[in-house]
Structure formats: structure tokens, C-alpha cells
């Protein structure tokens, strides 16, 4: 009971502090502190409720138990991370995104193909492509190659659609300007259309980071060697070792956010000129 009361007390205090903080002018510190405090509150609420109500760890382990599992099984987590993220997700992401990018440039000179590809691509991007996973596991075997293939199919269309749209993003006046310079097609592409397409390209790249990780993990549910994050999640769920499952989820969350963060940092450097990036 003490746990429950203490937790609720902490929650109220933290909420009160956040209210006060958020009514001050927004600074770098407060815009970091407020969500930070909120996150900590959630964790403590979780921990307190699990302890206070003595919730069965099979159902929901406390954050401390998850932290312990995380710390004690680092080598296993690392092996899984390499298998799923580095081998499966990253390779597929690189292949899928660059293939989509190159094809978008290849069809760039044909407005006919673009008009056909855009709606089809938009349509396919909304489909449950993840359902391809069992088929691709059949085709490419259990190891990371099949995971990579799933990721390729998943990221291809969102990336294609974004790049094609991006290449159309430069306005008429800027294209006319290129005409008055008698610029050749490659010159116009390199100097105008590609830079103008970058915000769209990076939008696609960012969407694809999450898709890549999801694809690699879910594909492992359809068969994998005895390592990998998806494999670990499904087997540990079977053994009802939920703390380990949550530790894998934490790894996935960290990897996902870090991956996204990296792409976002590169985006900031490349598209610093775009209105959405100009102010901090």
C-alpha cells in the first residue's frame, strides 16, 4: 500500500512541477526537462503499481526487473542486435532505399511512368506488405538474407513515392531559369532537382527507419536461426520470461530511436535551408 501512496504522491508532485515549468518561457532546459520528468514519472508509476498491487511478473515485470535482465544478458542482446539490426535491417534498408532512389531517377525523364508509378506506389505503400514475410522467408532461407529481403520490399515503395514527388518539387520558375541557361538534363538534375528533392528524400528515409526495424523483427517470427531480436521475443514469450522480452523491446526502442536520430541529424545538415529546419 505504501508503494501505491508514495507513487501517487510522486506523480502529483511531478505533475505540479511540470505545470509550473511549462508556464515559464520555453527554454532549451525546460523543453528537455518537462518531457524528461514526464517519462520518469511514467516509469515510477509503473514500478510503484507493479510492486504495490503485486502484479504477476509474467503479466508485467517492473522496470527494475527489466533493467536487471538487460544488464545481465548484454552479450545475448548484442548478438541479437547484430543479427537483426546490423545484418537484417541495415542491409535491407540500404539496398531498398538506394534501389528506390535510383529507379525514381530512372523514371524521372518519363512523366508517363511517373503518373503511373505515383498512385500505384502510394497504394502499395499502404498495403500490409509485412505479409510478404513468410513468402520471402521461404525463398531466401532462415538466416538474415530473408530478413533483409523483407526490409527491401517494405521500404521500397515509401521511398520511391517520396523521391518521385521530391523530384517534382522544384517550381516552374526555377526550371525556366535552368532553360534560359541552356542547362543540360544532368546539370538541371544535379544543380536544381536533386537538392530541391532532398526534404522529400529524407522524409522517406525517416519513415523507412521504423519500417526496416519492424520488418526485420517480424520476419523472424516466420523462422530464423537461434538468434535475433524477433526470435528471442517469440521464444521468451513462450517461456513466459517477460523481463527478457521487455529488455529486447528496450533494445529495439533504443536502436530505432538512434537510427531515426542519425537520419534526422544528417537531414538537418543537408536540408538546413528548408523552412522547417531553419529555426532550432
Amino acid at each position: 500500500m505504501i508503494w501505491v501512496v508514495a507513487t501517487i504522491l510522486f506523480w502529483l508532485v511531478a505533475w505540479w512541477i511540470n505545470l509550473k515549468l511549462s508556464h515559464r518561457p520555453r527554454t532549451r532546459l525546460t523543453s528537455f526537462l518537462v518531457p524528461g520528468l514526464f517519462g520518469i514519472t511514467l516509469l515510477i508509476l509503473w514500478e510503484g503499481m507493479v510492486r504495490g498491487f503485486a502484479i504477476n511478473p509474467v503479466l508485467l515485470p517492473a522496470p527494475s526487473a527489466i533493467g536487471l535482465a538487460f544488464a545481465t544478458s548484454l552479450p545475448v542482446l548484442w548478438v541479437d542486435f547484430v543479427q537483426t539490426f546490423v545484418k537484417g535491417a541495415l542491409s535491407g534498408y540500404a539496398i531498398g532505399c538506394s534501389a528506390a532512389f535510383l529507379i525514381a531517377i530512372a523514371v524521372d525523364r518519363s512523366p508517363f511512368l511517373q503518373r503511373g508509378l505515383l498512385p500505384v506506389g502510394n497504394f502499395v505503400a499502404a498495403l500490409p506488405i509485412i505479409g510478404m514475410a513468410p513468402i520471402l522467408v521461404m525463398w531466401f532461407g532462415f538466416d538474415w538474407q530473408s530478413k533483409s529481403a523483407v526490409v527491401v520490399v517494405m521500404v521500397f515503395f515509401p521511398m520511391l513515392v517520396n523521391t518521385v514527388q521530391g523530384l517534382q518539387a522544384s517550381d516552374h520558375m526555377q526550371r525556366d531559369l535552368m532553360q534560359t541557361y541552356a542547362a543540360s538534363y544532368p546539370q538541371a538534375l544535379m544543380k536544381l532537382r536533386l537538392p530541391a528533392a532532398m526534404p522529400f528524400v529524407f522524409n522517406g528515409l525517416k519513415i523507412c527507419t521504423t519500417l526496416a526495424l519492424i520488418g526485420a523483427i517480424v520476419a523472424e517470427f516466420f523462422g530464423s536461426p537461434i538468434k535475433g531480436m524477433g526470435f528471442r521475443i517469440s521464444t521468451e514469450v513462450g517461456r513466459l520470461a517477460l523481463d527478457m522480452v521487455w529488455a529486447e523491446i528496450a533494445v529495439a526502442a533504443l536502436a530505432g530511436s538512434a537510427f531515426y536520430g542519425c537520419v534526422a541529424v544528417i537531414e538537418k545538415a543537408v536540408t538546413f535551408w528548408h523552412p522547417s529546419q531553419r529555426r532550432g
Partner: peptide, 15 residues
């Protein structure tokens, strides 16, 4: 390249 053309908007490349 006989002429330079100035449009109604500056049309400078932001990057």
C-alpha cells in the same frame, strides 16, 4: 546564352 532572365520572384536556391 544570349540573355539573362529575371523573374517576378527572386527564385534563388535556398540551399
Amino acid at each position: 546564352r544570349a540573355y539573362g532572365y529575371v523573374f517576378q520572384a527572386a527564385g534563388l536556391y535556398p540551399w
